[in-house]
Design a protein around this nucleic acid. Sequence first.
DNA 1: ATCCAGCTTGGTCAACCGTCCAAGACGCTG
DNA 2: CAGCGTCTTGGACGGTTGACCAAGCTGGAT
Lengths: 199, 199
Amino acid sequence: MSRMAAKDRREELIAAAFRVMIREGVTKATTRAIVNEAKMPLGVFHYCFNSREELLQEVITRFTDSWTERVRKMSGTEGDLGSRVTKSLSAFWESVELSPGEHQVSYELTHYALRQAGFEELARRQYQHYLEAHQELLTEAAESTGIEWAVPIPVLARYLNSVLDGVTLTWLVDRNSEHSREILRLTGEQLLSLARERH
Amino acid sequence: MSRMAAKDRREELIAAAFRVMIREGVTKATTRAIVNEAKMPLGVFHYCFNSREELLQEVITRFTDSWTERVRKMSGTEGDLGSRVTKSLSAFWESVELSPGEHQVSYELTHYALRQAGFEELARRQYQHYLEAHQELLTEAAESTGIEWAVPIPVLARYLNSVLDGVTLTWLVDRNSEHSREILRLTGEQLLSLARERH
DNA sequence: ATCCAGCTTGGTCAACCGTCCAAGACGCTG
DNA sequence: CAGCGTCTTGGACGGTTGACCAAGCTGGAT
């Protein structure tokens, strides 16, 4: 194998682990499966990482960061509240149908973290960031369209996050795209009914 | 060990497996952990089950059946639509806070089934039954209070199921009971806004 | 040219896993 | 009591896993 800095190898291993997880699930992402995917000898693994858990931790944090960033970019910048909400929800759903594996892995990682001693905080941080991203989305939408929400933003953000989580999970199981889209449309309407003129 | 029919041992093993899963997670429910929990020698396992998968399959189907039955019993039988909805949602949430482990295991089993070859159908059946249970709940509530839903029942049932799934999952991570209850209250209101006089 | 920190590699280890089996013990039936 | 289906048990097998290590290699600094 050509010589490579440990830092660079870490990156490639993380990317390889991510691919394996999407293809075969988190539990199947063993040290051997990962180095095999990265086309590296087994010994590399524990030269770059102290443990498999350390890699998993890295995967989780990167996953969280990349997804929150993507949520932030879903914010539309023009049009009235209705079209902005619709556009955001459509963008979300597009990402789900485009890469279902990523979302499936996301759930698996959450449940893995909830069970793994010392990882609970990572799961909490994950959802904390999701909720904050949705809060920003709602806040910005309200401010730039001159309305205010009839419900506290943190609660509304959690409502939004929950619906998206639930509809995604259900879709991952039965792949009913038609009904899923209907729910997002319905959710959009419900959201609009909670907006009122700023007093 | 005192003599016992294989059928009876199967039941005890299933129950033991269930306890182990709640305590330590689905992946930790190994054949040895299960027989140890049931205080039986290891050899018993493959005398009662052809494989670990066969046990898992049994656990999943029983879990599904027991939960759908519980959902059906959440249907209130008196009062107007508003109080019935509130009561059902409260009953649901009570069950979540009372036994979080069961719900956590439910998610883990779903994701396990989605990855296990030949188990996809089991996961589909699980959510199919949940959706049907919610449909019955909504239908019965509408009929006995003289209203009709402004949205097709299957879609509304999926909406309800998604919200409950999402809020439960989020709560399992951050345990924010206050906000979770707020969401259920909000969901109840949204539901009521979708009910109209039968024409 | 020498040196040395950093990188590479294959093999090895103990632990754990699902599965299987031989040999025996039990208890009902004829 | 003899026979036989059913249950019981401890041990064993092959495979996989995370982790570790000794030995060698590489390439830039001195």
